[in-house]
Design a binder for these strands. Structure first.
Lengths: 363, 363
DNA sequence: CTAGAAATAGTAAGCGTTTACTATGGAGAA
DNA sequence: TTCTCCATAGTAAACGCTTACTATTTCTAG
């Protein structure tokens, strides 16, 4: 045993990591041969190959992914941009992305915007720097035209570089912008659950949560309104209260609304987290759910079934959404043009009925 | 407007992305000057710099991160390896890592093992290929000696390459293995909450969940036993039921245990998810918590306070754990040798008392 | 004025791979 | 026996950046 490396200690090479040249030297061949033996796309004599693999393990060699990427091979990485890693909505989508990516032999670069549009743009650029095979942008988007234009520019740049931008659960950037899309039926789910509420006899339904001017909010509200219209119930602006997603918002806004003694029999939380906050505010005031007030949410995140009463909500196949996003991203379909063709995929939503809704109290 | 690019369409460069040479040509300078203007670590005349930046935006240029990494600059990336992105325990740690990394100007490569040891080793190699500035390994570990040895080899390889391996919430790989560690007081938290249960009068406490031969399980059980010992309560092996983390395990195992008519007045769920499952099984049988049986969990993940009754549990500062991990990883401290020195950091845990514990029923 | 120090810009040598091309040594064909 | 064709292996040219050196100007001080 020369130096300080012991035979039982294969990976501990000297210096800052062995290169392919070291392996070549150790095996007594050229670097080209090592490269070929490793990638296996070119014939290498069996004996040579074995000698090379032995040197590889002896030296603890791993290829430098950057050199490899630079030399033309693909990066084998997909990037995903979400709002927040710890928000279950995003976490489940990320899980789907991560799983599908690794099933297709890719790494997964997960980053978070924390709701900052500028940061989102910057992150897309970062992924572009990383030359990821695709970048998946998740969650509702702002409809600020300047922002849309900047994102469209990036979509084009990505496309020009052979990568692709896939929009997951967010609206198109416009015709002609090269993107792929996978969405879920936001409007339909909102329609269905509102209709369910109405069918139970509710007429005055509060809508709480979701950032204003945000695509997700817009489509959920659209479904909400469509259901109202379909049953001939008048839209009452004083009943819709946008603001934010998140438990804290649901809780505090519900408290305020309770103080205002508004007349309602049911509450539609913009997502399950908001609904959780609403439930807490209600519980705090001694208002029983569903006997006094019915509550529904959206997403069917795991916490929905931990709440008491268990929350009636709209199920969104989050993990599936993530998987489809990478399938689409990695498929050869030449992302292109408009919203139709096979560059768009919509997964369905359906309501799941649990215990937070009943007929309104006939007061 | 030449070609098809319009002046309002800056990023859409022709071909597969502009290179630094394109920018240099457009600005009429050498690539070296562009590189310097961009990195800003060398004087460049103001007029030149402006010309360069204009070309950069005109062409939608972003540097090729791989070329940059290859040319010697650091990769500015930290890798984190967790079990599952959608498990809140890991998700919150990941959030801390992600935030601190981005605060320190790094990207974050998040990968998941799904509990597969082999995959974990492979992922470390993958990160080594990526030349990440550090790799953070999160969560309990197996104590299989072969595995430990392989991981130790990788720790050395990483160290040799100037990177570092930080163990987050898992035991040391042994003296002399170059790692950094950030842990939380698992044993102490388990002791505290067990002692709390005992102080309420419980004597027969069921311990449910957590993989056997897993470091986290081992230290939680150690705390559990120490508390029992301290109060002179006999250890009863028939009361401890290891198995897995996760809601499903808690639910099904609790059902089995209920069928066996074992004598107990409290249940210690190995983590909050297990506790959630336990609660459901109990509710299903009409057993009231805490009147009939008390339940506690571990981690204080958000769902703990959504459960009814609200779960009394041990708070682990998950996000802080993640932040500290990257602080430590990126600090210059020459990770080295044993478990002491400033390469190890332990954050405290404390119990949070909610509604799932009361004095046992005097039957 | 002029030597010497900034300030600014250019040249070119890597960084570690992949891969098109080229070279060599038999095996089988003619 | 000579020629052609495989199977193997080597050479060297990218890939797109950073940076140590070197080469100009332009000041500034003596």
């Amino acid at each position: 045993m020369t130096e300080k490396s012991s035979p039982t200690d294969p990976i501990h090479a000297r210096g800052s990591g062995a290169t392919i040249a070291d392996v070549a030297q150790a095996a007594g061949v050229s670097v080209a041969t090592v490269s070929r033996a490793l990638s296996g796309n070119y014939p290498v004599a069996k004996a040579t190959r074995e000698r090379i693999f032995r040197s590889v393990t002896d030296l603890g060699y791993v290829a430098n992914a950057h050199a490899r990427a630079l030399a033309g091979a693909t990066t084998r990485t997909v990037g995903i941009i979400i709002n927040d890693v710890a928000d279950p909505f995003f976490a489940y989508i990320a899980r789907g992305v991560e799983r599908q990516a690794s099933a297709e032999g890719r790494m997964c670069l997960i980053t978070a915007t924390h709701g900052d549009k500028e940061r989102e743009l910057a992150l897309v650029d970062l992924m572009r720097e990383q030359r990821t095979d695709a970048v998946i942008l998740v969650g509702g988007a702002s409809d600020d035209p300047r922002y849309r234009k900047q994102m469209a520019d990036r979509a084009r740049a990505l496309a020009a570089a052979g990568s692709s931008l896939v929009l997951c659960g967010r609206p198109s950037l416009g015709v002609g912008v090269p993107t792929k899309m996978v969405t879920y039926d936001n409007e339909g789910g909102a329609f269905a659950i509102t209709d369910y509420l109405i069918s139970q006899g509710h007429r005055r339904i509060l809508y709480v949560g979701g950032p204003r001017d945000f695509s997700t909010t817009a489509s959920r509200l659209a479904g909400f309104y469509r259901a109202l219209d379909a049953r001939g119930i008048e839209r009452d602006p004083s009943l819709v209260h946008e603001g934010a997603f998140g438990r804290g918002f649901g809780y505090s806004r519900m408290r305020e609304l309770l103080d205002q003694a508004i007349d309602f029999t049911a509450v539609f939380g913009a997502n399950d987290l908001v609904a959780a906050g609403i439930l807490e505010a209600l519980e705090e005031r001694g208002i029983r759910v569903p006997q006094d007030v019915s509550v529904v949410g959206y997403d069917d995140v795991p916490v929905a079934s931990e709440l008491r009463p268990r929350l009636t909500t709209v199920r969104v196949p989050l993990e599936e959404l993530g998987r489809e996003a990478v399938r689409l991203a990695l498929s050869q379909s030449p992302h292109d043009a408009g919203a139709s063709s096979d560059n768009t995929l919509t997964v369905g939503t359906h309501i799941v009925i649990r215990d937070s809704v009943s007929a309104p109290n006939k007061t």
